[in-house]
Each structure stands twice: as C-alpha cells, then as structure tokens.
C-alpha cells in the first residue's frame, strides 16, 4: 500500500526462468506424462508398452470392486492417520508454544525434528520390530501385529512432525493475551481451547493435514513393512509398475490419489485455510 511494487524487469524474468522451467517441464510435464500413459496398454506377454489409445485401464479401475475397496481403505487410513496426528499434535504443540520455557521449547522443537533426520526405512523397520509378536509392545500386553492397526500407528508416527510443526507455528502466532482474555471473560480451559485456540490454529491444522493426508495416500513402503497382508493404493500402483510392469494401469490408478488430493485441496480452499498459510 505504501510503495507500489515496480513491475518486474527483464532481469527478474531471467531469474524466474529456471524454477519456471523446472515447474513446467519436470513437474507438470511428468504429471502430463503420467496422465498420457494411463491411456496406453502393455503387451500382456512381454510387458512392453503399447502406445495405442485405450480406456481399458479406467474401465477395469471402475469395474473392479477391489480397486474401489482399496481406494476406500486408503482414504480411511489417511483420514485416521490425520485425526490421530491432529489429536496428538494439538496438546504437544500447545505445550511447546505456550507452556514450555524458551529453553525447553528449543529442546522440544529439536526433539520433534530429530526423527526427520532418521531414514524413513529405519523408522518403519523400527516399528516392524515394535509391533512384532515378540516385540516390545507385546511385553506391555499390546500386540496389534502387522495389519491395519499397526499401519495406522506407524504412519501416524512417521508423519507426526509434519502435523506438529505447522500447528506449533500457528500456536506461536496466537497472542497470549487472547488466551488470557478468554479466561478473564470466564471461560475454563476447555472452553478456551474449543472457542479460541482451536479456531485460531485451524488453518495450521489444515496445513498439517495436507501433509499427513497426502503422505498417507501415497505410502506403500510402510504398508509392506508393517501392513501385513494389507494392500493400499500405493501398493497396487507400485506392484503394477515395479512388479507386473503394467505402467499404464499403474498410471491410471495413480491418477486416483491426484484427484482425491485436488478434491481435498478444493475443500480446504473453501474453508479459507489456504490464505492463512
């Protein structure tokens, strides 16, 4: 408002060229290639790609009830993981941002970030050990074993930092005086949380949920490690591409999570949460 931004000069344009090229060619181009491949097929015997337009992949996708089941299961797991992470992240982030001393806060931020330094595989295999019939959880009398429950636990663990960090940032932006004002006006802690904290960090929760949701939608490695016989969308894509060598069908099915995520982002946009990111 104070000074009008200068129109970008030719030099700014040059600076933007490499990232735009990357975005346009590598990123969108790859998505385009994926979309295109979904309309091809393979030679059933040799597995070679046959570049002839066909809708067979999509027909199979919609007719085979197994794909619907797997899509719904994947969505369910993604929703569950997101909810678990949200429920865990809210008190942790609140404690970090509003209760802990600055020193403890720094330590906690490091503690939250630390698991991100470890390899995804190491963490997933660690949970394989935890969930094993003879693993540490069984000593406590809990042994969910490998399957959906173990999968939700593991994925919720893996993606928790991606939920805590935005929510923590949101909590930090929330002025202490708002919490004091709420309490001052007669609201007990729970009412303050529900009416002031939660609405204030809602955009941050949504931001975190985009991570947890999309990462779960796409995961197939943790499923292999702790999911037992469970199949998720990512496994079908990976098996079709990496095992059955059916790239076109893999591409067709991979479009499903893309559509789901676009839909999810559409809903998120309507809540207005994206403007606050």
């Amino acid at each position: 408002m104070s000074t009008r931004p200068r129109p970008p000069g030719p030099r700014t344009g040059l600076l933007l060229l490499p990232p735009l090229l990357w975005l346009g060619v590598a990123y969108l181009g790859a998505l385009g290639a994926l979309f295109l491949a979904a309309f091809w097929t393979t030679n059933e015997f040799t597995g070679d790609l046959v570049r002839v337009f066909t809708l067979d992949n999509f027909r199979e996708l919609f007719q085979g009830s197994v794909y619907r089941t797997i899509t719904l299961r994947t969505l369910g797991v993604a929703v569950l993981v997101t909810l678990v992470d949200a429920v865990l992240a809210l008190p942790i982030a609140f404690f970090m941002a509003k209760v802990a001393s600055p020193r403890l806060r720094r330590l906690l931020v490091i503690a939250v970030l630390m698991p991100l330094w470890a390899s995804y595989l190491v963490k997933a295999y660690a949970w394989r050990g935890m969930l094993s019939t003879s693993g540490p959880l069984s000593w406590l009398g809990i042994s969910p074993g490998y399957g959906l429950t173990g999968l939700v636990i593991t994925l919720a663990y893996l993606w928790l930092p991606y939920m805590i960090l935005p929510v923590f940032a949101g909590m930090e932006k929330l002025p202490d005086s708002l919490l004091e004002a709420s309490s001052d006006l007669g609201a007990p802690a729970r009412a303050t949380f529900r009416r002031v904290v939660l609405p204030s960090v809602f955009p941050a929760l949504v931001a975190g949920s985009i991570f947890t949701f999309s990462l779960t939608m796409g995961d197939y490695i943790a499923v292999k490690i702790v999911g037992g016989p469970t199949q998720m969308l990512g496994n079908v894509v990976a098996d079709n591409y990496g095992v059955a060598n059916n790239l076109p069908f893999a591409a067709a099915y991979a479009i499903v999570p893309v559509i789901v995520m676009l839909g999810y982002l559409g809903i998120v946009r309507r809540t207005g949460a994206l403007e606050n990111l």
Binding site: A30, G32, A33, L34, A37, L49, Y220, A254, P257, M261
Partner: peptide, 19 residues
C-alpha cells in the same frame, strides 16, 4: 503427491528407455 510425481518421471524416463 510426491510419489505420483516420481512415478511420472519414471514414466517419462521409461518411455525413452523402452524399445
């Protein structure tokens, strides 16, 4: 989303490699 992209890049590469 990330994985879908990876797959798509692989697709693009694969299209070049596959004869």
């Amino acid at each position: 989303m990330k994985r879908a992209t990876t797959l798509a890049i692989a697709a693009a590469v694969g299209a070049l490699v596959l004869t």
